[in-house]
Design a protein around this nucleic acid. Structure first.
Lengths: 205, 205
DNA sequence: CGGATTTTGTACAATTAGGTACAAGTGCTT
DNA sequence: AAGCACTTGTACCTAATTGTACAAAATCCG
């Protein structure tokens, strides 16, 4: 498998397949087909077969895919066959929600730190975490070797913080701030902005 | 402008343009070009010109686009030249964060209700909101004529709640639950799942 | 005022993504 | 053991998306 040659759009669908497979496994199912999986995720069976076949021949004619086997393959392809350390920057309501969220641990992620620049928040706790000062963020991230960050600071601060994260060695940013970030090509950004998502739907109302 | 003919992928970029234009307006800028806007949002100038030209000739050769004029046009196209009532279902941490979020009001949305099925939460308050019982949700949504919902319930409950929302007349769902929803074709869904978004990036690490 | 510069909107070309169809492998049933 | 139903992986085709290039319009500047 040549990672450079896989289109982003296919990579973007793999986590959706993986999520559905994990739900099937939780229900005790052992095998599935592109047809069945497609019905669960709202994607055509042919599309799913073609996406998966980019990485190898994981299915068996007549029976379909072993859920456990395909899950393992997808986890390996997406590199979530390990646990990634993640930091949260911004200890507002969204930072709190992410820190308390239980949905990371089964999907390959583990929060190892929360930072904020508000001196009144620094030293406070969220669950088991102590909020640390943004001033020591770069050195802490470097020391821990963290490659992934979730950014929940106000839009006005987001670009500055993103640059610090890049400087600290972060290579993937999940950006909750409502602004496009300018980062080097080797750093990936995913955007979560509820207003933007809502505006994508109002067009059709 | 024929809404049926506009590809989803273009509609998806319009809110990003709008967001950047609103920031420029806040800085006091009056005009911009496809070149400049493209640098802000990380999209090629030609792409932006082509996207915008789907809806009319809003620019002027030599000078570019009036920020105010283009903003108005995009708001109108996206139907956020009005305020949409929105409900939140699920009063967990994410429901709290959304209820307290100040970033909706300038972008066309107004939260008018929060629901939860936990009797211990019902009657409690989040900011100015009183948490209402999911049992009365359908009738309340119908009475208010709400068309948009944000879903922050656990995955196990999401499909059931989505069906109730559809029954109540909701036509757009912003789904924070980590599961694909099965809804009629005339109902739009946007997905926000931090683990899925993170997994889209780990592939490249 | 006139040439240089900027910028749009679009025609055309190239690339990318998705749909269709089917040979071939697998297992089930009788 | 033979036929049937199911399902994959892929070759081929079609549609959708993006990139390139440029004529035409508008402004700027000396």
């Amino acid at each position: 498998m040549n990672a450079d040659k896989i289109p982003d759009i296919i990579v973007g669908r793999l986590p959706v397949y993986l999520r559905a497979l994990q739900r099937m496994a939780d229900k005790g199912l052992k095998t599935t087909s592109s047809q069945e999986l497609g019905e669960h995720v709202g994607i055509s069976a042919a599309q799913i077969r073609k996406d998966i076949s980019q990485f190898g021949e994981f299915g068996k004619q007549g029976t379909g895919y072993s859920i456990e086997f395909l899950t393992d393959k997808l986890r390996s392809i997406l590199k979530v066959d390990r646990i990634w350390d993640v930091v949260v920057v911004g200890a507002g309501d969204m930072g709190h929600a992410l820190a308390n969220y239980q949905g990371f641990k089964d999907r390959g992620f583990h929060i190892v730190g929360i930072f904020d620049n508000n001196k009144e928040k620094v030293g406070g706790t969220i669950g088991n975490f102590t909020i640390e000062d943004t001033e020591i963020m770069v050195e802490r991230i470097k020391a821990m070797g963290v490659k992934i960050a979730m950014l929940t600071v106000p839009a006005a601060a987001a670009q500055d913080v993103a640059e610090k994260l890049v400087q600290a060695g972060v290579r993937a940013i999940l950006n909750y701030a409502p602004i496009t970030l300018n980062v080097p090509n080797n750093v990936k950004v995913q955007y979560i902005d509820p207003s933007t998502h809502l505006q994508r739907m109002t067009f059709y109302l």
